[in-house]
Each structure stands twice: as C-alpha cells, then as structure tokens.
C-alpha cells in the first residue's frame, strides 16, 4: 500500500495524534502500523482513553 494511504487518528479526550506512517515506537507501535492492527484494548498514551474513542482526522 502506498504511503499516501496512511491515516491519522485522534483521541477525542486529549487530542493525541496517532499517525499510521510514523507509528509510536514509545508505545511499541512501529512506523507503518495500521490502526486496525492495534489491539482493541490499547488506550491513549496521554490520557487513557480507549481506542474506540478515537476519530480519523484529516490534517
């Protein structure tokens, strides 16, 4: 899949951004990790909001 297809997701509580292209290595999520591949019990690293309370955003 082309890099342009990577999406960005945002926590509704605190605004944390998860960019699929960059991943979040401090969370153990390598660059390129798709949102769908992140476990459902993962929570926002900044505020603990569940994965289900994130929105896909255009930046």
């Amino acid at each position: 899949m082309a890099d342009t297809d990577f999406k960005t997701w945002q926590c509704r509580t605190c605004g944390y951004l998860y960019d699929e292209a960059e991943g979040d290595p401090t969370e153990g999520l390598a660059p390129g990790t798709r949102w769908a591949d992140i476990p459902d019990d993962w929570v926002c690293p900044l505020c603990g909001t569940p994965k289900s309370d994130f929105d896909m955003v255009e930046l």
């Binding site: 509580t13 605190c14 605004g15 401090t26 690293p45 900044l46 505020c47 603990g48």
Partner: peptide, 20 residues
C-alpha cells in the same frame, strides 16, 4: 529518557487541555 510516560499533565478526562 525513553520511554518517558509521566503524569505531569494528569491522566484521564481531566488531562491538561493545554499540553500540546
């Protein structure tokens, strides 16, 4: 320091609005 997940901005619904 890595990782450096701290609670200086709080956590949960009251996490600091101005952190970014």
């Amino acid at each position: 320091r890595t990782p450096n997940k701290h609670v200086a901005f709080g956590y949960g619904a009251h996490v600091c609005l101005g952190q970014h």
